[in-house]
Computed example of a mutant assay.
Amino acid sequence: MQIKISNLSKQFGNKTALDDVNLEINSGMFGLLGRNGAGKTTLMRILTTLLTKTSGDITICDIPIEKSRDIRKIVGYLPQDFSMYPNMTVYEAMDYLGVLSEIPSRKRKGIVLELLDKVNLYDCQKVRIKALSGGMKRRLGIAQAIMHDPKVIIVDEPTAGLDPEERMRFKNLLSDISKDKIVILSTHIIEDIEETCENVAILNNGKVIYNGKTEKLSTLDSKNTTILGGYMKVMGGEV
């Protein structure tokens, strides 16, 4: 399994959101790091076919990005602003999403219960969405993202606003899922990348300014990293 991105650019009018992005992403956890507005969400929305590229080439598991229907069958997406009907129960929401995913009724209940158990929400089946904590909603979001057993899972700022315990639980869940899939974790929180991802790309103003091993971030020359600003800590150094 591999995602190949070659010379990808995206324009919104006169604004360049992505500028000649080149990446190869393999199985496991891959980090996408950068400040808000760096281009992370634009890249993810292109990979999920919610946006079209301006130029360049993308294949996901050897499928060209232009074949959007085929891409959507193998990609699961958890946006930062994931939400469901607040008065639905957890089970009702998952069952409804199962209908939208065209899962046959004879299989749907078993799949829903298995997923709720996987994300530690099995005992919350009758709880209404509006009563869930932020961490519970993110875990429900992951359950819906993997309902159709995708090869690729893309998650946008999944731990923002969570307490330390929920953040750790969520990161462990993603690590477990990534054993046989590609999981792209987009965040501006360096600790999330550091603790879960072997490889990382850093975006700034739509450009990839670093692409490599997470452990090597600490060796970057400060002159090459100051464009990210001084707000992110990288293993004791400033990025």
Rank of each mutant, 00 (worst) to 15 (best):
residue 3 I to Y: 01
residue 4 K to G: 05
residue 5 I to P: 04
residue 12 F to Q: 01
residue 12 F to M: 02
residue 12 F to P: 02
residue 13 G to N: 05
residue 14 N to T: 05
residue 16 T to A: 14
residue 19 D to N: 06
residue 22 N to R: 06
residue 23 L to R: 10
residue 25 I to N: 10
residue 29 M to P: 12
residue 32 L to N: 05
residue 34 G to M: 02
residue 38 A to K: 08
residue 39 G to W: 02
residue 39 G to K: 01
residue 40 K to F: 09
residue 41 T to R: 03
residue 44 M to H: 06
residue 44 M to N: 12
residue 47 L to I: 10
residue 48 T to H: 01
residue 48 T to Q: 04
residue 49 T to C: 11
residue 50 L to G: 14
residue 53 K to R: 13
residue 53 K to P: 14
residue 57 D to G: 12
residue 59 T to W: 10
residue 59 T to A: 07
residue 59 T to C: 09
residue 61 C to E: 13
residue 62 D to W: 00
residue 64 P to I: 11
residue 66 E to R: 12
residue 71 I to W: 00
residue 71 I to M: 02
residue 72 R to G: 01
residue 72 R to Y: 02
residue 77 Y to Q: 04
residue 77 Y to E: 02
residue 77 Y to P: 00
residue 78 L to I: 00
residue 86 P to D: 09
residue 87 N to S: 15
residue 89 T to R: 07
residue 90 V to Q: 05
residue 90 V to K: 06
residue 93 A to I: 02
residue 93 A to N: 14
residue 93 A to H: 10
residue 95 D to A: 07
residue 95 D to K: 13
residue 96 Y to L: 14
residue 99 V to G: 11
residue 101 S to G: 06
residue 101 S to D: 09
residue 105 S to D: 13
residue 106 R to I: 14
residue 106 R to C: 11
residue 106 R to Y: 12
residue 111 I to C: 03
residue 113 L to I: 07
residue 115 L to F: 00
residue 117 D to V: 00
residue 118 K to R: 06
residue 118 K to V: 00
residue 118 K to I: 00
residue 119 V to A: 07
residue 119 V to F: 04
residue 120 N to E: 06
residue 120 N to Q: 13
residue 120 N to W: 02
residue 121 L to W: 00
residue 123 D to L: 13
residue 125 Q to Y: 06
residue 128 R to V: 09
residue 132 L to M: 08
residue 133 S to F: 08
residue 133 S to G: 07
residue 134 G to I: 05
residue 134 G to E: 08
residue 135 G to K: 11
residue 135 G to S: 11
residue 136 M to E: 15
residue 139 R to I: 02
residue 139 R to L: 02
residue 140 L to R: 04
residue 141 G to F: 04
residue 142 I to K: 07
residue 142 I to L: 13
residue 142 I to C: 12
residue 146 I to N: 08
residue 148 H to R: 12
residue 149 D to L: 00
residue 152 V to C: 02
residue 152 V to T: 04
residue 152 V to R: 06
residue 154 I to E: 03
residue 154 I to L: 03
residue 160 A to M: 05
residue 161 G to A: 09
residue 162 L to S: 10
residue 163 D to W: 09
residue 170 F to T: 14
residue 170 F to Q: 15
residue 171 K to G: 10
residue 172 N to T: 13
residue 173 L to P: 00
residue 175 S to R: 12
residue 184 I to R: 04
residue 187 T to G: 15
residue 190 I to C: 14
residue 192 D to I: 09
residue 194 E to C: 03
residue 194 E to S: 06
residue 194 E to F: 01
residue 198 E to V: 05
residue 198 E to C: 10
residue 203 L to F: 04
residue 204 N to P: 01
residue 204 N to S: 15
residue 205 N to H: 15
residue 205 N to Y: 10
residue 207 K to D: 01
residue 207 K to V: 01
residue 208 V to F: 08
residue 208 V to L: 05
residue 209 I to E: 11
residue 211 N to L: 11
residue 211 N to H: 06
residue 216 K to Q: 09
residue 217 L to C: 03
residue 217 L to I: 02
residue 218 S to Y: 11
residue 219 T to F: 15
residue 219 T to N: 13
residue 221 D to F: 03
residue 221 D to M: 06
residue 221 D to H: 15
residue 222 S to M: 15
residue 223 K to P: 05
residue 223 K to Y: 15
residue 224 N to I: 10
residue 226 T to P: 05
residue 228 L to C: 07
residue 228 L to K: 15
residue 228 L to P: 07
residue 228 L to E: 12
residue 231 Y to T: 15
residue 231 Y to P: 01
residue 234 V to W: 07
residue 235 M to S: 15
residue 235 M to F: 08
residue 237 G to Y: 05
residue 238 E to M: 10
residue 238 E to R: 08
